[in-house]
Design a protein around this nucleic acid. Structure first.
Length: 600
DNA sequence: CCCCCCCC
């Protein structure tokens, strides 16, 4: 019975030797860390002669355990593995085996029992064998079979390359003597920061090898030292970094840790054959499953670009920065479609005319008024027509009728949730939907009447800087001071900030209209209104009397805010347009029909 | 030590 197992292979492997594709039995598994996509499992395996529990499953194989495919008593062939000697474990050195590829020869349900009578393999068992160290000189390594790509086989003069490397999956903060051989999947631009704690610069890179992936960040001095050297797609030997727990909010990489370069960090480019180090690792989510994922999570997705909108320019509300975006709709053979938003240069340079396959790693799932879409972050990797099996499959599918498939677009904005669509709702409906209670604020459109305007401070002298609209302090000496820019100006620009009440048949709402929307409502430029405020008070007052009781199609952004312990809705006019009564009547007829069921 | 990543 136990003869089908590779008896004695465990002993060889645990002593640092190699055994080609050993056949073992799984006797148990245990989760040792993490959760969700980042959990890691330890296996108890037996070769019929010995058993040991220092085998770890590379995270990309987790599914086999979770789905039950890799059940206890399964007989498996370990197609690919690496071993790593852990130090500082409290009990001296300990070798772990990381399983990279596995074939299930016989499922546990068919085997149903432990094969043979394996004895627990201990470090004492190992003591009888020649001692192995973590840092093996090249000749010794070269003497081993080269099944594992993580072993350097050539006689390299570089001191780093002459050592045995460690799989990324084995790195942890509890162990600092390691060298990894990793490919750079992506590299961020150099960025500076400045906050209460200080300022500095940094860049980060995402690294991978056969066993896993990890993010590394370099700060300040290390930026100067390594930024130019690190190039995407190249393979490097890296050692001596600090390891710390990764914040999952900012990375989709499957690793519980991330690395920080420090003064001791050594990086050298791998000059020999690195073709076995993978280029990039994806965990693609089928498009029809994206909507089930948590908002704000980072996902990998691949699809064919079915449509690409034009580049849109907009100004970021929070920073005043000018932004460029392009929405690309991607589809896959699941019949799902999702919008992927590209930013900046990526948005400008994108060409969707040839319907390229788009692969994104680490795109953020965002929700806007009930529909979900993906948005690229600075750390998102986008590749067009990548040389991946999934991409070739999609190409074939799309070019052979897939383009004509009916799709469900999870980013479609019509219908579902009154607010975000073009649908008009009432104040009482907005209240019933509790619009404004979320973190991000909600948008809705409605037909409303302007019933009152607060005219006293509707116009103010604002900072003349392009993106700064801060109210200036009159220094009474011909100069105006901007507290935000921290400087004085001889000039200013007029801007509007109009408080008003809007009513509809169901209620009323205090609203605020900033410059552009207030100009649209009044029908005059802020410069003209400012001049009237200074030199023609009667005309100024008349402007606001004129617009009182006028009806507009308003688009509002509303959000609950707290002022001195009191929560109230802050509702801002995104746009105010005159009513197109033909459209208004069509909407009215439609809602009459919806309410009464009568064709009108 | 960053962690901002935008808009409808």
């Amino acid at each position: 019975m136990s003869s089908q197992l590779s008896q004695g292979s465990l002993e060889i492997i645990m002593n640092g030797g190699h055994y080609d594709k050993p056949i073992m039995q799984v006797l148990g598994s245990k989760k040792i860390q993490g959760s969700g996509a980042n959990e890691r499992f330890r296996l108890l395996v037996s070769d019929g002669k010995h058993s040991h529990s220092f085998a770890m499953l590379a995270t990309q194989l987790n599914d086999k355990l979770i789905t039950g495919e890799l059940s206890d008593y399964s007989v498996v062939q370990i197609d690919r593995f690496v071993t790593s000697l852990l130090k500082n474990t409290g009990k001296g050195e300990k070798r772990v085996m990381i399983i990279l590829d596995i074939t299930i020869i016989k499922p546990g349900s068919e085997v149903g029992k432990k094969l043979g009578n394996p004895q627990t393999w201990t470090e004492e068992t190992a003591a009888s064998a020649p001692a192995q160290t973590t840092m093996q000189p090249a000749p010794k390594v070269a003497a081993l079979p080269t099944q594992s790509a993580n072993q350097v086989t050539s006689m390299d003069t570089s001191s780093l390359a002459s050592q045995m490397t460690h799989p990324i999956a084995s790195l942890s903060p509890y162990q600092n003597k390691w060298v990894i051989k990793a490919r750079v999947m992506s590299k961020s631009p150099l960025r500076t920061w400045s906050n209460a704690k200080g300022e500095g610069k940094l860049f980060s890179m995402d690294l991978c090898d056969e066993s896993g992936e990890i993010r590394a960040t370099a700060f300040r001095n290390e930026c100067d030292k390594f930024f130019d050297m690190i190039q995407v797609d190249k393979v490097y030997y890296i050692s001596r970094c600090q390891l710390k727990t990764a914040n999952k909010q900012f990375t989709s990489l499957k690793n519980d840790y991330e690395m920080t370069f420090n003064a001791d960090t050594v990086v050298s480019e791998c000059q020999d054959d690195a073709s076995s180090v993978p280029t990039i690792k994806y965990d693609f989510v089928p498009i029809n499953e994206i909507a089930d994922k948590a908002t704000d999570s980072l996902l990998d997705v691949i699809g064919v670009c079915r449509a690409a909108a034009d580049v849109q320019e907009l100004t970021a509300r929070s920073t005043g920065k000018l932004l460029k975006k392009r929405e690309v709709t991607v589809v896959d053979s699941t019949g799902g479609a999702v919008s992927l938003t590209l930013w900046g240069n990526e948005a400008e340079n994108f060409d969707g005319s040839t319907n390229p396959v788009v692969a994104a790693k680490g795109a953020r799932l965002t929700e806007f008024n009930g529909s979900k879409s993906l948005s690229c972050l600075a750390s998102t990797m986008i590749r067009l027509n990548p040389d991946l099996p999934e991409a070739h499959k999609l190409r074939g599918w799309y070019d052979n009728g897939g383009d004509k498939m009916d799709v469900v677009n999870i980013s479609a904005r019509t219908g579902t949730y009154g607010g975000g669509s073009n649908e008009w709702i009432t104040f009482s409906e907005a209240e019933a939907k509790q619009l404004g209670s979320g973190d991000k604020g909600d948008y809705y459109s409605m037909l409303g009447v302007l019933t009152f305007t607060f005219t006293d401070n509707a116009v103010y002298k604002a900072c003349p800087q392009e993106q700064c609209n801060k109210k200036l302090v009159d220094q009474e000496n011909g100069l105006f001071r901007c507290e935000k820019c921290n400087r004085e100006y001889p000039n200013f620009k007029y801007r509007l900030l109009l408080g008003a009440n809007v009513s509809d048949p169901t209620g009323d709402q205090r609203i605020t209209a900033f410059n552009e929307s207030a100009e649209a409502m009044i029908g005059k430029s802020s410069a003209d209104i400012g001049r009237m405020f200074e030199y023609d008070k009667t005309g100024y007052t008349a402007l606001f009397e004129d617009i009182k009781f006028r009806t507009f199609v308003f688009k509002f952004r509303t959000k609950m805010e707290t002022y001195s312990d009191e929560a109230r809705l802050k509702t801002i006019v995104v746009s105010a347009q005159p009513v197109d009564y033909k459209d208004g009547n069509a909407r009215l007829l439609k809602s009459i029909k919806a309410v009464t069921g009568v064709e009108v």
